[in-house]
Design a protein around this nucleic acid. Sequence first.
DNA 1: GTCTATAACGAGATAGAC
DNA 2: GTCTATCTCGTTATAGAC
Lengths: 216, 216
Amino acid sequence: MDFMKTPTSSAPPSDTALQVMRVAERLAQTRGFNGFSYADIAVELGITKASLHYHFATKAQLGCALIISYRERFNAGLAEIEARFDAMRRLRSYIQLYDKVLLSDRMCLCGMLAAEYSTLPAVMQRELRLFFDANEQWLERNLEQGRAAGRVKFRGPALEFARTLTATLEGAMLLARSYQEPGRFAATARHLLQEMDAAISTEGQSAAAAGKRKSR
Amino acid sequence: MDFMKTPTSSAPPSDTALQVMRVAERLAQTRGFNGFSYADIAVELGITKASLHYHFATKAQLGCALIISYRERFNAGLAEIEARFDAMRRLRSYIQLYDKVLLSDRMCLCGMLAAEYSTLPAVMQRELRLFFDANEQWLERNLEQGRAAGRVKFRGPALEFARTLTATLEGAMLLARSYQEPGRFAATARHLLQEMDAAISTEGQSAAAAGKRKSR
DNA sequence: GTCTATAACGAGATAGAC
DNA sequence: GTCTATCTCGTTATAGAC
């Protein structure tokens, strides 16, 4: 965990720094990285902007710390899930990670930053891609294992399906926040899990075409 | 077609206003609504910021004009598609609308604005939702028709699948832009179309679980 | 319609005292 | 570590001449 001023620093963040990050993370998730300022954080914590700059000299450094922290917690969550459940429950738990974020009225930090990608400092862009890389590797691995075990079904390469899955979850979060209905995300989550569950028959998906598996 | 200063105005936009919108739209799609300023537009068009304010008194009005214009063009595209093709080709064409945007190095305007939703003026928030509403109604209608005709297959209510579809496309665009690979979106698009195509067998999706029902 | 000029404010960031 | 004070720049927006 190196959140701090330089990528090579290893000093543990102070109490104040952690509070700054806590507030900044929420603001970044709800308003975007370009949607909040040091003044917003300072007011909420009852300190001055100058004090913030002591802990995070530039906003880019704060942004990097946010991504690294978020990614590490996410990866820790994934590791925990992977150690515990079988294939379908892992995927269910994966989706619940996203659901939990949305239920706290936030967008995924990295999904939000992805929208702002072209305006972000290069250092943040790099850290951001690492989040999605880790996501897709975890999913690819577990999808492949689940399919081999006969518990998960999907078509094509696991990597491509992993990317589709992440895209759907990020997109569903994004759109759900424009409405005031958490059910929008939940419905999509349910749909995804049903489609992947090898224990659920695929018969009768198509009302009229049901009888036409002959075509081949 | 009312892009202009008030929601009830109906004067056609002047040549300059159209140029302003053309530039502003591109900036909003690539950098976000909070990621560009009147100065950016002014420099690019070789006029002054003050002139911009003559055409669009406030940035919120410019933003509304952008959404309405974008939505109307999108709806026109959807109407054209609906008049011409059969079910699967309609869905393919729908996805191509998104692909075309991404290939011009842009994010969907409304997907981008959805990320910034909580920071947008209320008038823009309202116009934005109308875009997604129109999208989901078009998709719901055409998915249902396609399923009834036996050409499209999917599980559950058409409305829910429509929302999942839009979420996947918006999410895939969002993530594709953090990498420099348009193939990321294309792969997801291909995957979606394969899954929906009733003419494609669903056998063998699950390597191990599929030992049964082998009509191949 | 477009301009110059400027208001009014907020942004990120720094210097230096305590 | 936190403060006051300040700097510089960019932002939206307006007044008024041409």
